[in-house]
């Protein structure tokens, strides 16, 4: 791609934004269809997360111009949210434990 981020700001052809816009529409329609056709189980979760990740990636990379920023900024902004996944892991254990105690002490106890 010939366009680049210069001191004059982000200069990219309009076509690029229209293409990404189109893809976001397609991906959103796909994730809606997952629900519409009542897909269940692993396939449902996998598709939902895949479409979510693709949409988020397109928005960050192209609409927010992260693809053209320097690596120093991209790392500073994109790496910290990954730590949230550790938090998700911790809370998964916590929720499982809470469910366990509730089932042991509150159900038919």
């Amino acid at each position: 791609m010939a366009h680049a981020a210069t001191s004059e700001g982000q200069q990219h052809p309009i076509r690029l934004y229209l293409v990404v816009w189109g893809w976001l529409f397609i991906l959103s329609a796909c994730s809606y269809l997952v629900d519409y056709f009542h897909l269940q189980g692993m396939l449902r979760w996998a598709l939902i997360l895949l479409f979510m990740a693709l949409k988020a990636g397109l928005i960050i990379a192209v609409f927010m111009h992260m693809a053209w920023e320097r690596l120093a900024l991209a790392c500073a902004i994109l790496l910290p949210p990954l730590v949230v996944l550790v938090f998700v892991g911790i809370m998964t254990f916590e929720a499982d434990y809470t469910l366990f105690t509730r089932e042991v002490f509150f159900r038919g106890g």
């Binding site: 910290p80 949210p81 949230v84 938090f87 998700v88 809370m91 998964t92 916590e94 929720a95 499982d96 809470t98 469910l99 509730r102 089932e103 509150f106 159900r107």
Partner: peptide
Amino acid sequence: DTFIFSCFLISYMTVRMSTV
């Protein structure tokens, strides 16, 4: 702001996973 929304979504995950 990402962390704020993450906290909301993680709280939601936690209550949904732990409810009987």
